[in-house]
Structures are given as C-alpha cells and as structure tokens.
Design a binder for these strands. Structure first.
Lengths: 108, 108
DNA sequence: TTCATTGTTCCATGTTGATGGAACAATAAG
DNA sequence: CTTATTGTTCCATCAACATGGAACAATGAA
C-alpha cells in the first residue's frame, strides 16, 4: 500500500476531470455513500465488486479532487472534500448531492 | 432530416445521463458556445470537425435534456434549456456555466 | 514469525463511446 | 427539375476506460 496519496490542490482541480469522475454510476454511488456516512474505507463500499475495481474508482475520485484519503492503520478512510469543491465550483456538488437517495445507508 | 426531435420532459431528465453528456470536452464546448451565442446551429460550431460527429454530440445533449432544437427552414437552431435544468437540478448548470471562457465567441 | 486484513498495482479482457467517411433526407433557391 | 445547404443515419474503426483476477505491499494481531 502506498502510504502517501497525492491530493490535488484546489487550484489544480479542474472542471472536466471532475465531471468525468462524477459521470459514472459506481463513482456517483461512492460519492453518495460518503455523503451519507461521512467517512468510509474501500472495503466498506464493495458490495460484491472486486477490490481492484473499487480501488480504481477511488483513485479516479481522488485525482479529480473529489475525495481525500486518510490512512488509519490498515484502513484508508475516505471523505468528500466538500469545502474545497464548494469553494472551487460553488453549487456544483451540492446540486449533485441533493439527488442523493435518502435510504442509501441501509443499502450497504 | 427527421423533422421531429424528442425532447425529454423535465421529469424525464435524470442526473447521470446529464453528467455523462456534460463530461465531454466537445460537448462542454458546445454548451459554452450556446451559452455565449444564445442560439446556434450545428454547422456554426463545427470548427473543423465532421458534421456526423457534431450531430452525434448534439443528439447526446438533446437526449440528456440539455438543449432543445428548433427547426427553421434548413437550419436546426439549438438553445440550452436553462430554465428546465435550473428547475430540475438547481445550481448545477450555473456552476458549470460559471466556468465558461469569456472570450469564447471570438474563437468560433 | 506467522497469519489476517486492507488496499494497491499489474495485466489482460471486454465494452462503451467517439470519430469520420459516405449515402441519404429535407428544405430552399434558381 | 436541378442544385446547394443543412443535418441525420449508417457503418466501420479506434481509443479510452471499466472490469476483475492475481500477486504484492503494508499494517496489526496472535
């Protein structure tokens, strides 16, 4: 496990990669779950998918600036970078998160 | 030319197809140009691309609910459905359009 | 040390979607 | 009718990306 992740600075976050990252059903699901749970690690959100696939999606979200990963022991806890995103593209993520299903946490 | 287009009703516009439609550089460019120009037909925005390719992108944007096409003689004039989008996903398109380059019209 | 857990990396495969030429359709003008 | 313009549709090709197995790395516990 690479203990270090590169999280892009706010100025490095650009719209098109961000949109591309969000425009995927699995990744949108990850975003919604993180929004509901506040924090989650990769395995928690697997729901039958292979780890390699989920790890890939977390990487895409990370490099797009959407989430940050904090290493805690053997787990890597992920949280949305809502403050940064709201500062960088006001209203964008909140518009997306408004569509978050209300019963998501139980679907895990 | 199919004289009729199907424009999805506001309730039929869903987030994921909308995000997928926007998450493409060519289509984001079309959106920005329509935002700058107010209205434009396909050929106006070609800028060296083949018509079949642009026609495809207009179709994707249309089916996602982002633009509507009005037939005027031999031309098909496209406009953004800003009112519908703002009603359906408040703040989403305005956040995207805020990133529209100021000098876009001259780039045509 | 040994084992379990977590997540990444590598790699091959498959699928989706963008690209672009060609033919066609629709409207308008000469 | 003929011609020009506009945009769609069909089709083949290509590239980007998601998928998922396997091996590996990192931390923690026994």
């Amino acid at each position: 496990m690479a203990a270090l992740y590169h999280h892009p600075a706010p100025e490095e976050i650009t719209l098109l990669p961000l949109l591309r990252a969000v425009a995927d059903p699995v990744r949108l699901g990850i975003i919604y779950h993180l929004h509901s749970l506040g924090e989650a690690n990769c395995t928690t959100l697997l729901r039958g998918r292979p780890k390699s696939s989920m790890s890939h999606h977390f990487q895409v979200l990370r490099e797009a600036g959407i989430l940050q990963t904090r290493v805690e022991g053997v787990q890597h806890r992920n949280t949305l970078r809502l403050d940064v995103l709201e500062e960088r593209f006001p209203g964008l993520m909140s518009a997306i998160l408004r569509e978050c299903p209300a019963d998501l946490p139980e679907k895990i």
